[in-house]
């Protein structure tokens, strides 16, 4: 039973981890908490549907289109909204992200209707049993893709020029500026990167639940996972995501399915009250 909960929990956990990464990747560099991220995730899933159903694109091309447009949308938010707001209080920027989220959500409701749309699975949704465990190929694909994206993210930060500039801004924005890194340019990249992470989460999650304009509430799960992880640590965000997915699945099995969603809110509140740095968070890097 426990093993089954683990196996089932990691599917949701992988998606939460991606959303949590989306929050943390952006916040560490810009200090902005993007409350529209969940709705951007929904938009990205809808773009896949639009590409397939309305433009007649193959599934892979529709996904590529969605990822590109999502990255572009993120950069556009930075250029069009956040950069002009530079110098205003952080709270103003955060409220702007709420407004962007609401606009995306209601725009989708108005244009795509409130009805759910079907989104294809990556692999078969038909379960099979292996060593007493019920496995679903579609769910395994979700976990596999999410893990691959996480590895790619860490490799990018470690080994590419693009990633080194991001790490430098994480470490010290003034230091980054004086070695010749354009900090506003890195902010734009972070908005794009965060949007792509949310997009992958949305595209992975859409077939498992129903795609509706309110799918963005999954953003709250990702937010809770990021808080669990301390909100400034990328590995923490991943661990927080998997932990939340597993705990939630366990609560669904042992208590009731209605409890599932309450668990993440309870963890969120409990964590903020008892462990303000999260389970894995470290103190802010001390300035040298």
């Amino acid at each position: 039973m426990l093993a089954q909960i683990l196996v089932s929990g990691v599917t949701a956990g992988a998606v939460y981890a991606l959303v949590a990464l989306g929050f943390v990747v952006l916040h560490r560099g810009t200090r902005v908490v993007h409350f529209g991220l969940g709705d951007q995730l929904t938009l990205s899933a809808y773009i896949v549907v639009i590409g397939q159903v309305f433009l007649g694109l193959p599934f892979a091309a529709a996904i590529l289109l969605s990822l590109l447009l999502s990255a572009g949308f993120g950069v556009l938010i930075e250029r069009g909204v956040m950069r002009p707001l530079r110098g205003s209080p952080l709270l103003v920027m955060i409220i702007a992200t709420l407004a962007i989220g609401a606009a995306v959500r209601e725009g989708l409701r108005a244009s795509m209707g409130p009805l759910p749309w079907p989104v294809p699975f990556l692999l078969s949704p038909a379960p099979f049993t292996l060593g007493g465990l019920v496995l679903v190929p579609a769910n395994l694909a979700v976990v596999g893709v999410a893990l691959a994206v996480m590895l790619a993210l860490f490799a990018m930060l470690r080994w590419t020029r693009f990633g080194r500039a991001i790490v430098a801004v994480y470490e010290n924005p003034t230091g980054a500026a004086i070695v010749g890194i354009s900090v506003p340019g890195v902010h734009a990249r972070l908005w794009g990167l965060s949007s792509v992470l949310a997009a992958v989460a949305g595209i992975l999650m859409a077939p498992l639940i129903t795609l509706s304009p309110d799918m963005g509430t999954i953003g709250i799960k990702g937010f809770a996972a990021a808080i669990l992880g301390g909100f400034n640590s990328l590995p923490g965000a991943i661990a927080g995501g998997f932990l939340l997915g597993i705990v939630e699945t366990g609560a669904g099995v042992y208590v009731s399915t209605a409890m599932k969603d309450i668990v993440s809110y309870a963890l969120l509140i409990g964590c903020v009250l008892l462990l303000p740095r999260g389970l894995f968070g470290t103190a802010e890097a001390r300035k040298v």
């Binding site: 020029r161 080194r164 500039a165 790490v167 430098a168 470490e171 010290n172 003034t174 230091g175 980054a176 004086i178 070695v179 010749g180 890194i181 890097a285 001390r286 300035k287 040298v288």
Partner: peptide, 24 residues
């Protein structure tokens, strides 16, 4: 600029700090 507060990258190694010095 070598600023008064130094503004190093604290958790990166000496070699990585120097490498970023040559970023441009």
């Amino acid at each position: 600029l070598v600023p008064e507060r130094r503004e190093l990258f604290p958790s990166l190694s000496v070699a990585e700090n120097l490498d970023l010095g040559a970023y441009a």
